[in-house]
Every structure is written in structure tokens, then in C-alpha cells.
Computed example of a mutant assay.
Amino acid sequence: MIEIDWAGEAGRLRASAEGEAGWNAEVARTLVRDGDQVLADVGCGGGGMAKALAEARPGATVVAIDADPDVLAQAREHTAGLVRCELASLDAGAEPLRQAIGAPADLIWASASVHHAADQQAAVDALAGLLAPGGRLALAEGGLPSRQLPWDLGLGEPGLELRLDLAQDRWFKVMRDSLPGSVPMPYGWTEALTRAGLVDVTTRSVLSETPAPLAPERLDGVVQAFRTRIERLTGGGPHGHGHGHGHEVPDQEWLDPEDVDVWRQLLDPDGPYFLGRRTDLAVLSVRSVHIGHAPR
């Protein structure tokens, strides 16, 4: 069984907020408009986007919202007084979020949080209902699987990273199905925004690339991210972020034993195949942001 430990995840989310500062700043600049007064980051994690929004729109009220106090403490420290941090859960519906924000929002950002809600459409509906006329809801969900490894690592069968993505996809389906009160959403995020009553719905996908060789701190981050993913799929540790409480997934083998053995060798700092000593790892990522506008 796998259970989310939000307190244990808080540090990783803070590190992610720091590591993705450039991406957050780039996206924030495309989202913020002159005249925006109230902006919110729902499911803020380490507060990376909340900080970027505050820096992109000085003088605006920016609210970072999360359901876990340990995660929110990391966001508060990371944003260093630039934003107001509030404790509220997307699972509880619109009203707690409305009270946390305090006024209709010109922009609401939600990254990798709505997909943890049992009823994703209801969550999108709730967020859309918090917008001021003409306000925007931006959901960072999906994109393309990132690529960091060469196809042939000289250990195990080639295509190891592809098989990891497939295993994680199977895991995600079981996770979704296991949520209490889980409701299927058999359509895409743009359709969900449209069903929530938003208009001018579109998607922007942002490509980011860091070529090999990676700087030591970036390489460490890539290795740690792989370690977290493997722990998730082998029952070895906490993971994820989004709605502030744990959920369990039935035990099963997500990866072939041969691949598990390869990953253990790749992630062993004392072993001959440790990824942290390779010079051919890179980062290629495409992340999608789905945007809808409240009618005026």
C-alpha cells in the first residue's frame, strides 16, 4: 500500500519550487495582465508559482493556498512575505477557497492539484466560480513525459525510461480509481473548463530544455526525482502533491523485477552505474497549461 506523507513531501516541493523558478517566471509573465489585483495559486506546493506571480505583478494581492500545514510552511518561507499564505482544501469545495482568497480572483493557477480531486470536474467548477468577470483559470496538467536518460544505458534492456512512464501511468489510473468517491472524467482539460462555463478556452504548452552535461545541482535533482518515482512504484516512500490527505493504492508490481534491479543499480551512489556520475543526462520537458476565461 502507498500512502502520501505530505509532511515528508514538503521539503521536496520546496526544492522543486526553487529549481523551477525560471519556468515559473516565464509562465507567470504570460499569464499576468495589467490591472490584475487578485491572484491565487491553489495547491501551491512550495510556493514557486505564487512567488513568480507576485514578482510579475508587484502591488497585487497574491494568495498561496494549500491543504497541508507543513507544505504551506515551506511555501511561506520560500515566498518570504511576497504573498499571503492560507490553509484550505480543494476537496472542501469553493467556499473555503473563497474565504481564503478574500475577493473574486483575476487569475487562479492550479498546477498538478486538480487531478488529485475525487471529482475533477467539480473541482474545476469550484475554481471557475471564484473568478472575477474576465478572470482566468489556468490549469497546469499534462503535457509530454519528460526525458532525461539515453535510450541505451549499457545496463538492462534499452528503453528503461519509457517503461517507467508506462508503469507510472498504470499507477496513476489505480490511484484515481481508489480515491473515495472517485468520478471519471473521460474528456480533456479544455472540455472541463468549457463545462465549467468558461470561454475562450485554449492550451499553451511550454518546452524547456537543459542539454547535457547537467550542472551538479541539476543532475542531483534529476537523480532524486528518479529515486522518488521508483520509491513510489516499489512501495519505498512518499510522493505526490495536491489535496492534503493521504490515499492508499493496492500493492502490486508496477515494474518488472529486472527493471527494478537496474534502477537500484542506477540509483546506488556507491555502485559503478550511478546516474549521478554520468555526463550524458539532459532534461527535455513539455508542460501544458489549459486556460479558460470567465464571461464578462
Rank of each mutant, 00 (worst) to 15 (best):
residue 1 M to S: 12
residue 3 E to F: 15
residue 4 I to F: 12
residue 9 E to D: 01
residue 15 A to G: 12
residue 17 A to S: 14
residue 20 E to G: 11
residue 25 A to W: 07
residue 31 L to M: 14
residue 35 G to S: 03
residue 44 C to I: 00
residue 55 E to L: 15
residue 58 P to L: 08
residue 60 A to L: 10
residue 63 V to E: 09
residue 73 A to H: 14
residue 77 E to W: 15
residue 79 T to G: 03
residue 85 C to Y: 13
residue 91 D to N: 14
residue 97 L to N: 10
residue 99 Q to S: 15
residue 101 I to Y: 05
residue 102 G to M: 10
residue 103 A to W: 09
residue 107 L to Q: 07
residue 110 A to K: 06
residue 115 H to R: 11
residue 120 Q to L: 03
residue 131 L to Q: 06
residue 132 A to F: 08
residue 137 L to R: 09
residue 139 L to R: 02
residue 139 L to A: 06
residue 139 L to T: 02
residue 139 L to K: 01
residue 142 G to D: 05
residue 154 G to I: 05
residue 155 L to E: 03
residue 158 P to V: 08
residue 158 P to A: 10
residue 164 L to C: 11
residue 168 Q to L: 05
residue 168 Q to K: 07
residue 168 Q to A: 11
residue 179 L to D: 00
residue 192 A to L: 10
residue 194 T to F: 06
residue 194 T to P: 07
residue 198 L to G: 00
residue 198 L to C: 03
residue 199 V to M: 05
residue 210 T to K: 12
residue 210 T to V: 13
residue 218 R to M: 10
residue 227 R to A: 13
residue 228 T to A: 11
residue 232 R to D: 03
residue 235 G to D: 05
residue 235 G to H: 08
residue 238 P to L: 04
residue 248 E to K: 08
residue 257 P to W: 04
residue 259 D to P: 06
residue 259 D to V: 12
residue 263 W to V: 01
residue 268 D to E: 01
residue 273 Y to W: 14
residue 277 R to Y: 04
residue 284 L to E: 08
